[in-house]
């Protein structure tokens, strides 16, 4: 049952993420991206990582994608006024994409199916256990990453400030 659900949802994730790239309208792209994130949430639930699932739901689907949609609606991008890409850019894009595919294939080959990663406890994703891990052994990296986020936030606020004119 679990495996068939996984394959169904995984297929949906792939279809939706392809639609993100293939849809001409940027708004449709964002909406497909939201659906992709939703399938990720289902994946997290299947992996018994409830906290990660619900945080993905709130932060990515509920907040970040709203902002994406917000900006796109304000910019009012349409396919008509999208500038045409030159042939050079297209070729460069193909080369970059090919490199990425090569890396992916290489890394997939390195991962052997015979040695799957086994979690020490299957309930690690539940809030209580996750909290104990994060604020116990992983305290320092966790706090450091929060400082990183804070720095980004301060930077963003600083960017919105108008530059004061210097007299003279």
């Amino acid at each position: 049952m679990g495996t068939s659900v996984f394959y169904f949802v995984a297929t949906l994730s792939i279809i939706f993420s392809l639609m993100v790239i293939f849809s001409k309208n940027p708004i449709h792209s964002v909406l497909y991206l939201i659906l992709t994130f939703f399938t990720f949430t289902v994946h997290y639930v299947l992996l018994n990582a409830q906290f990660l699932a619900v945080v993905n739901f709130i932060v990515y689907m509920g907040a970040i994608m709203v902002l994406f949609l917000f900006v796109l609606m304000l910019l009012n991008l349409n396919k008509e006024n999208e500038p045409n890409k030159s042939a050079m850019l297209k070729i460069l894009g193909v080369i970059a994409g090919g490199c990425l595919a090569l890396t992916l294939v290489g890394s997939l080959k390195a991962v052997s199916i015979n040695s799957p990663l086994v979690l020490k406890s299957a309930n690690l994703g539940l809030v209580k256990n996750l909290g104990k891990e994060l604020f116990g052994p992983f305290m320092l990296p966790f706090e450091l990453s929060s400082i990183l986020l804070l720095a980004a936030m301060v930077g963003a606020v600083l960017l919105t400030k108008k530059e004061e004119k210097v007299n003279g």
């Binding site: 709130i58 689907m61 949609l69």
Partner: peptide, 25 residues
């Protein structure tokens, strides 16, 4: 009774705005 009930409600609330945004656009 999921053990992240409060966050679930919070998530549903934050999702509610999509109806308005999509309809309005």
């Amino acid at each position: 009774d999921i053990n992240v009930g409060v966050l679930y409600i919070f998530g549903v609330v934050s999702l509610g705005v999509y109806g308005v945004m999509i309809g309005g656009w």
